[in-house]
């Protein structure tokens, strides 16, 4: 299992699309920085194929006023949880 990290908003370029196409059925995806915009209910349908494997970083949601506005299907992790995700994954890939 690999962890894919996306720091770009769905509206900015193709990072999300590229990350999704490089994912296998077990891989997980973590949204950080502007990537957390993808956790909004209006955006989250773009991640329908990986439901249950989508995470977003709490600090970055909070800093943007998006904490609580995010879709409940997105699992929110703090930075400690980010490290845990990297422990559990054999490798990480970043898409920016």
């Amino acid at each position: 299992m690999k962890l894919h990290i996306v720091n770009r908003a769905p509206d900015a370029g193709r990072a999300v699309e590229q990350a999704l196409s490089a994912m296998t059925a077990e891989d997980r995806l973590l949204l950080i920085e502007d990537g957390v915009q993808g956790a909004l209910p209006s955006q989250v349908d773009g991640f329908a194929d990986i439901e249950g494997r989508l995470y977003a970083l709490r600090d970055d949601l909070e800093a943007r006023g998006l904490m609580g506005r995010h879709d409940e299907r997105v699992k929110v992790v703090d930075v400690d949880g980010f490290v845990t995700l990297t422990e559990q994954a054999e490798r990480t890939l970043s898409w920016y």
């Binding site: 990290i5 720091n7 990297t86 490798r91 990480t92 970043s94 920016y96």
Partner: peptide
């Protein structure tokens, strides 16, 4: 064991 990339 792990390499994690941060980029702009």
């Amino acid at each position: 064991d792990r390499l994690v990339t941060f980029a702009s």
